[in-house]
Amino acid sequence: MKTILVPTDFSENAFVAAEYACALADAAGQKVQLLHVYIALYAGYGEEGNSVKQIKWAETESGEAMKDLVGTLTKQFPDVDIEGECVKGFMIEVVMDKLKKGENSLVVMGTKGATNITESILGSTTYEVIKKSPVPVLVVPIDTPDFAFQRVGFFTAYDDDELDALFAFQQAITLRPHLAMVHFFKKDEKAPEKELAHWQRKVAEAYPDWGVSYHAIPVEKANINAVTQIAQTEGLDLLMFARPHKSFFQKIFEPSLTKAIANYPTIPSLFIKT
């Protein structure tokens, strides 16, 4: 059974992401693995006793918080196998080590939040996980409504590498939503009709059983507003992007916008390394 990894700092936004992951796991027949990484901060110079106390305190606090979180989610999703783990270390390092084992098919993360101790670890590491993760990373904003997975928007540059992203999506998530293929081009340029027709044939050949629609949209500037507008117009439940290489981001978007969408998504957004 496939397992969704959900890093959490016990913030409100992380809880929303965990709920989303559990709803997705419930629909797709997967397991959920919650992960909290804590850092015990202390000063040196002979203060070993205090540092040991701080580590034990962090272990106890995180362990109790994880127990409560697993209990709450299990009540909401009784049919989902949910487990939790607390590890001392640094979030990005622990997450990457876990992903190297090949046991997780997907990572689900929140974007911003704060614990009662310090600023959210997730807020500063989500983008790093997206850049380094060998599996798809799904970012969930705090204001995400009830779980829905009917229509997914895939932002494409008509690159062959993006077919690999679709395959990774198929492997990570067994659900089959409608795919809305979205391509932006500049208003002062001609619509890429030949490229679109070529892309349609390739997608149909690779994924003949999927429901797919195609949208070539002229824009003044391909920015987060354009992404948000098409998401609203098409009633999309999820946005999907392939990266890195010469992807949609590098060809159409400014590099900084990749990070902006990752940190401040308007709806759940999936990032796939190709």
Rank of each mutant, 00 (worst) to 15 (best):
D81C: 10
G84H: 03
E85L: 11
V87Y: 00
G89C: 10
G89F: 11
E93F: 12
E93S: 14
E93H: 14
V94A: 14
V95P: 10
V95W: 11
V95M: 11
V95R: 11
M96T: 09
M96F: 08
M96C: 05
D97Q: 14
K98T: 06
K98D: 08
K98R: 15
K98S: 10
L99R: 09
K101W: 01
K101T: 15
K101N: 10
G102K: 06
G102P: 04
S105Q: 10
S105C: 14
L106S: 05
V108K: 06
V108N: 05
V108C: 12
M109S: 06
G110D: 05
G110P: 06
G110N: 06
T111V: 12
T111N: 04
K112Y: 07
G113M: 07
A114G: 04
T115W: 03
I117E: 13
I117L: 14
E119F: 05
L122V: 15
L122I: 15
L122E: 00
L122P: 00
L122K: 01
G123K: 05
G123S: 09
T125A: 12
T125W: 00
T126A: 14
T126R: 02
Y127G: 01
Y127N: 12
Y127H: 12
E128S: 12
E128A: 14
I130E: 02
K131D: 00
S133P: 05
P134L: 09
P134Y: 11
P134N: 11
P134V: 11
P136V: 09
P136S: 10
P136H: 10
V137N: 10
L138E: 07
V139M: 04
V139A: 15
V139Q: 07
V140H: 02
P141L: 02
T144I: 01
P145D: 09
P145T: 05
D146E: 15
D146M: 10
Q150L: 10
Q150I: 04
